[in-house]
Nucleic acid binder design. Sequence first.
DNA 1: GTCTATACCAGGATAGAC
DNA 2: GTCTATCCTGGTATAGAC
Lengths: 190, 190
Amino acid sequence: MTAALSTADRILDVAESLVRTHGYGYSFADIASELSIRKASIHYHFASKQTLTRAVTARYRVAFAVRTAEVHESGLGPLAQLEKYFGFYRDALRDGDRMCLYGLLAADCVTVPAAVRDEVNAFFADQERWLARLLTAGRRDGVFSFAGSANVEALALLAGLEGGMLMARSRRDVHGFTAVVQRLVANLIR
Amino acid sequence: MTAALSTADRILDVAESLVRTHGYGYSFADIASELSIRKASIHYHFASKQTLTRAVTARYRVAFAVRTAEVHESGLGPLAQLEKYFGFYRDALRDGDRMCLYGLLAADCVTVPAAVRDEVNAFFADQERWLARLLTAGRRDGVFSFAGSANVEALALLAGLEGGMLMARSRRDVHGFTAVVQRLVANLIR
DNA sequence: GTCTATACCAGGATAGAC
DNA sequence: GTCTATCCTGGTATAGAC
């Protein structure tokens, strides 16, 4: 049996969902409304919007690191690992108007507090590292084929994922995203 | 000799610049401050924020269509045309904290009025069409090589461009964007 | 821990003088 | 056309009762 979620955790859950739709433009009012509490109660658990947002991003970054680590240690081949990894992004896009929260916060990077922006860029750095390692191993095994550095290739893949989500959500066309992902894979394995 | 810009044009210029940094979160106060006029004066030229934003996007979309048409009719080869096209995006990113205004408005697609969202998606459709035509011609001439439909390839390129700008701006690393663009080109010409 | 109440600021928008 | 003045809404944040 799972323990009931603490209020702080429920606030984090709702905030995460809202960031994934509105970016840093989410509001305490929406959180309070969703949880049937008052705006002021949120401040008891998280002193400020910056604090809450940073908690959301840090929590998600750790959780994502756990999932990618599991893929890494799964014993799957490079191609299967890549497809599992891309599946994380497709899943993030699938449920409605949401997408990767770091992509949306990156779009708001001018208005976002520095502490949050650092968290966003740390996420991108994590993904770049993880992908570059996978790409290097895959190329060594003869599974992947690409010219130039694995780091740049990883960056290009991330850009395609984030931009693909951004456009697919605006156009309300998730299928366009999966098509882009298939192209990214196809470009690597030929 | 060029005529002095009308106030409406100057408002459009400043608004465009602000959208390219803040997305739909730009403010009338910032425009007014930049032009040394009052917020209320803006409403004389543009009835609402929605009206102004739509004017900005429509104007830019037409201007961009003119530039891409010039590239199309330049007599340049497919590769040179593609590089000129990518140069437009690199230029949009280069000056400071700005990027493609449609990418930022796409990120705000949940809060943006429908009329503006239509304009954003029309831009993406324009670019997809333009790129697909170039890709098709380039493949026919043996310059480009890619599997599958030119439309999907065009979409993947756009995603890479928009996502690349988004990440580069957040990380304050324009060089990363140019590296990604080089990868996109390299993937096509081998 | 959660509430009410409120302070304070900034947003877009409108009315009417000049 | 541009101004001042104002309205209304909604944002984050704080104080203090319960």
